[in-house]
Computed example of a mutant assay.
Amino acid sequence: MIKKTLLGSLACLSILAGCANGFSQYYHGMTREQIDEKVGVRTGVEPKAVYATDVKAESEHLAESGYALVGESSFQGPESRFAESKAMSQARSLGADLVVLASSGAGSETVAVPIVTPRSSTTYSSFSGNAFNSYGTTHVNGYGTSTSYGTTTNIVPMTVHRANYYAGYWVKQKPAVPGVVFNPLTPEQHRAIGTNSGLLVRVVVIGSPAYKADIFKGDYVMAIDGEPTGDPASAAQLLKAHAGQVAKISILRDGNAISKDVQLAPASN
């Protein structure tokens, strides 16, 4: 009886621990409304799970394939076989196309779990005596029982294995006007090229206008149609203003100045 009760109690604890969804609780990023505005209304999207041993490399591959990262979840919690299903639940709520999953061991800890089991106590008593009636005296012997009920609480040690969890949520972007992702330069990079202008090409989307014009990851974009580049947001606005047109992009590659005529894609609605 105690063994069955213990197993049942541990099962209940497991179920209770699994109720919270850390992937939604610790999510940070775009809301569903912002995602719909960015890429269009997300209806009937069934996300796919991608397991990654190198999240950075996988993220670069997705960016080059035209996907955009819209949010992430990261937290530490008990190891759970339900981790993937909970991450997928959060991905569905966002309308994500892909969720990149990664986990690693975070050690273990011993916790004290109180287990309450039923307890009963029975006492026995006997008696003897004489009973008087119209026929005379009769000797009587007998016994009785009395049972009391209660509970017993036992403290049971349990080892909980913990893990670090990560999930990145990605959506397929609309066709990009240039198809590049810029990074601002560090002070060391500015010093190396001798100017405060310039942006680093971090990603080139495969098949995009920039890709077709042979702009490479690692190039420095120095100017767009003669306008010096200073920050990624301004460069993106400048490229968007030239959507559907040919833009002259000045590049610095391995110390050499290069000019590229890039036929930009039309702006997406």
Results as ranks from 00 to 15, higher is better:
Ala57Gln: 12
Tyr124Gly: 10
Gly230Ala: 11
Ile35Trp: 00
Ser146Met: 08
Gly218Asn: 00
Ala63Gln: 05
Ala91Thr: 02
Ala265Asn: 15
Gly71Ser: 04
Glu72Ile: 11
Lys56Tyr: 06
Ser268Phe: 09
Ala102Ile: 01
Thr31Tyr: 07
Arg119Met: 15
Tyr220Asn: 13
Arg253Met: 01
Val160Leu: 15
Lys48Gly: 14
Cys12Ile: 10
Ala265Met: 08
Thr195His: 03
Glu33Cys: 05
Ser148Phe: 09
Asn21Tyr: 13
Gln189Arg: 08
Glu58Tyr: 05
Gly18Ser: 07
Thr110Tyr: 14
Ser121Lys: 07
Ser259Arg: 06
Val203Trp: 04
Leu98Phe: 01
Lys56Leu: 15
Gln25Ser: 10
Ser73Lys: 05
Leu200Gly: 03
Val181Cys: 05
Ala63Tyr: 04
Gly95His: 01
Glu46Trp: 12
Val160Ala: 11
Gly77Met: 02
Met222Thr: 11
Thr122Ala: 08
Lys217Ser: 12
Gly40Tyr: 01
Ser9Pro: 06
Met88Thr: 01
Pro78Lys: 07
Thr151Cys: 10
Ser14Tyr: 14
Lys217Val: 14
Asn164Asp: 11
Ser128Pro: 12
Thr186Lys: 07
Lys174Arg: 14
Ile155Lys: 07
Asn133Trp: 09
Gly18Cys: 09
Val203Phe: 00
Leu6Asp: 02
Tyr143Gly: 14
Thr43Phe: 08
Thr137Ser: 09
Ile2Leu: 11
Ile251His: 05
Arg253His: 07
Ile251Ser: 03
Lys212Asp: 10
Lys48Ser: 07
Trp170Arg: 10
Ala49Met: 05
Leu6Asn: 08
Gly168Leu: 05
Val246Phe: 05
Ser128Ala: 09
Ala49Tyr: 03
Leu101Ile: 06
Pro78Ile: 04
Val41Lys: 06
Thr151Gly: 12
Thr186Ala: 04
Ile206Gln: 14
Tyr211Asp: 13
Phe127Thr: 15
Ala192Thr: 13
Val204Arg: 00
Tyr220Cys: 08
Gly71Ile: 00
Gly77Gln: 06
Ile249Asn: 09
Val45Ile: 02
Met158Ile: 13
Ala57Ser: 13
Ala213Asn: 08
Arg42Leu: 02
Tyr149Val: 12
Thr229His: 01
Lys3Tyr: 15
Pro228Leu: 00
Ala247Asp: 13
Asp54Leu: 01
Asn141Thr: 02
Gly230Tyr: 08
Ala49Leu: 04
Pro228Cys: 01
Thr195Leu: 03
Val262Met: 01
Gly22Tyr: 05
Ser250Met: 11
Leu94Met: 01
Ile251Tyr: 01
Ser74Asn: 13
Ala192Lys: 15
Thr31Phe: 06
Lys248Cys: 09
Ala63Glu: 02
Thr123Glu: 12
Val116Ala: 09
Asp231Thr: 10
Glu84His: 11
Tyr165Gln: 00
Glu84Pro: 07
Pro232Tyr: 04
Gly218Thr: 05
Asp36Leu: 07
Arg253Thr: 02
Tyr165Ala: 00
Arg253Asp: 06
Gly142Leu: 01
Lys248Arg: 15
Phe82Asp: 12
Phe182His: 02
Gln263Cys: 15
His139Leu: 04
Thr123Asp: 12
Thr159Ser: 15
Ala63Met: 05
Ala17Tyr: 11
Gly136Trp: 01
Ala11Glu: 02
Gly207Val: 03
Asn164Ala: 15
Val180Thr: 04
Asn164Gln: 14
Thr31Met: 12
Gly22Asp: 06
Val205Asn: 00
Cys12Ala: 11
Val181His: 04
Ala223Glu: 03
His61Gln: 13
Ala49Gly: 03
Val160Ile: 15
Val111Tyr: 08
Gly77Tyr: 02
Ala163Trp: 11
Pro118Leu: 04
